[in-house]
Design a protein around this nucleic acid. Sequence first.
DNA 1: TCATTATTTCGCAAAATTACGAAATAATAT
DNA 2: ATATTATTTCGTAATTTTGCGAAATAATGA
Lengths: 94, 94
Amino acid sequence: MAQFAKVMGHPVRLYILQKLVKKNACCYSGNLINEISISRSTLSQHLKELKYSGLIEGEIEGPYIKYCLNKENWAKVKMLFEKVFDIYENYIED
Amino acid sequence: MAQFAKVMGHPVRLYILQKLVKKNACCYSGNLINEISISRSTLSQHLKELKYSGLIEGEIEGPYIKYCLNKENWAKVKMLFEKVFDIYENYIED
DNA sequence: TCATTATTTCGCAAAATTACGAAATAATAT
DNA sequence: ATATTATTTCGTAATTTTGCGAAATAATGA
């Protein structure tokens, strides 16, 4: 869980994740580069890290690479965080 | 949110947070040092960072310092994360 | 084949994080 | 006052992260 939190702990990576969380959302490096002021190589590194962590996956689509959420792993992360937050919630309610 | 995720992105800090999430839980540096194999100064730094981020607060209690969750901020973080996870959940359910 | 477009890897520098031991602080007890 | 206990700050070293530009790769189109 700390690993996942760490990956989410960078504004660029969190931005990308938040985009991809939406239904069937996907993004492209060349697309993101217009929204974020960062060099292409740096963006590429962040995408690589997100991919390596298992939170997203990339698929070649013509000359582009289409990135989207890895739904299975995202569900896992969601559960890990919710477990921690729910412990708190269960205790606070009395 | 990235800031909070970053703070949670270290195993020692996450460990401490998970302890404190339980009802009225608190901890002491000298207490934690027996559970985590890390030097006192390093532990102190992590506590400082947690405090600086607003996730925990410390209170002097005799010769000890009692740390506990900052409930207000924890609730904020919980909401921030839940919002992101809920977006996903709302979309996936159809 | 050669040029073009999209994107990544490489090499490297700057900055931030992590970790430690020694010294400092702060409260209590003798 | 002095010693003891709990904990933090300071100085510093090692490691990791972040970021960039240049070169490399890979697919498409002329």
